[in-house]
């Protein structure tokens, strides 16, 4: 009844969401193998071996997996999945892109975005932008799941190291090629891992005004997020979007500035521990989920906040 977890990484470092996925995996089985497919990814494999709960690290190191395209990785998963009852991936853009493709090759119906393991065949997952939580059960011989990282703690590290097994199945793919990427560079914490998130919406009016948020974020060690409206208006890049169709965050403190609180935005942040809303409209729906609401013009409130921190 073992589990295979697909590690997310950039060939150099392991992405944090993998750790939350490993925690979900340990709730399903004591045998948790982690797949690391990439090129020159030994550092990633070594990092995975140090994660508590990992039984074996399976490394597929080949130029074929450099960009971890679904067209190469899905057939690889099909090859090796026979040894496993469960295959888990983080519910990130990486996992969402890959897992369903592999599932179809295995003739399995995957389950997306689980937030709770009820038992070995039963899981909870949000539907309708989190307005309802469905309990789903499946008797399939193999279960492919993506895991919402905010719902599981990250697996801790351990002193000992799990064995690393180098494997040599390389599946080349003629269908898709990597052309390039624009990776957002920031010294601030990653949005989905930060303890404090401060997000701006359409009320920020333009990208330059986001500097009002950056100053506060740097004082608080916070990540900066945004509503879809702020992304669509071109104030900030898409990787900052919080919501149903963006990133899901659940920090200790979430500060929403100039954000109205549409259900699609709430879907991405309403499990935060403490929510603060700053909005000049006292009837804005965001106040219905805010622990502390401040009805104020953000252009006076933010400089004042920066001053007092």
């Amino acid at each position: 009844m073992s589990v295979l977890v697909i590690a997310e990484h950039d060939n150099k470092s392991l992405k944090g969401a993998t750790l939350n996925t490993i925690t979900a995996a340990t709730q399903l089985s004591e045998q948790v193998d982690v797949l690391v497919a990439g090129t020159q990814c030994a550092d990633v494999a070594a990092a995975v071996a140090k994660v508590a709960g990992v039984s074996n690290v399976l490394v597929f190191d080949s130029p074929a997996y450099e960009h971890q395209l679904a067209e190469s990785l899905a057939p690889l998963l099909k090859e090796i999945a026979s040894d496993y009852k469960y295959v888990l991936a983080p519910a990130t853009t990486f996992g969402k892109n890959l897992l369903p493709r592999a599932a179809a090759l295995l003739d399995c119906q995957p389950i997306s975005d689980i937030i709770e393991v009820v038992d070995g065949t039963t899981f909870k997952r949000p539907i309708y932008a989190g307005n309802a939580i469905a309990t789903v059960t499946s008797q399939q011989s193999k279960l492919l799941l993506t895991v919402r990282s905010t719902a599981f703690d990250p697996a801790p590290s351990q002193d000992s190291s799990a064995p690393i097994q180098n494997q040599d199945i390389a599946i080349t793919n003629e269908l898709s090629h990597f052309v390039g990427e624009q990776v957002a560079e920031s010294d601030r914490p990653e949005l989905t891992a930060a303890n404090i998130v401060i997000s701006g919406g359409r009320g920020m009016q333009n990208g330059d005004n986001f500097s009002l948020l950056y100053g506060i974020a740097d004082k608080l060690g916070a990540a900066v997020g945004a509503s879809r409206a702020a992304v669509d208006s071109g104030f900030v890049p898409n990787d900052m979007q919080v919501g149903q169709t963006g990133k899901i965050v659940a920090p200790d403190l979430y500060i929403a500035v100039g954000i109205s609180g549409a259900i699609q935005h709430l879907a991405g942040m309403k499990d935060s521990k403490v929510i603060v809303a700053i909005n000049k409209d006292e009837d804005a729906p965001i106040f219905q989920v805010a622990d502390y609401g401040l009805v104020a013009d953000l252009f006076t409130a933010l400089p004042e906040l920066n001053e007092l921190l």
Binding site: V136, L305, L308
Partner: peptide
């Protein structure tokens, strides 16, 4: 169907918060 929905519940509701008067 290979996956069956057995129950649907409302998400945990947040307690109503308060309005503060000032940034301080």
């Amino acid at each position: 169907p290979k996956v069956v929905i057995t129950a649907v519940e409302a998400p945990a509701q947040r307690k109503a918060g308060i309005k503060v008067e000032s940034v301080a």
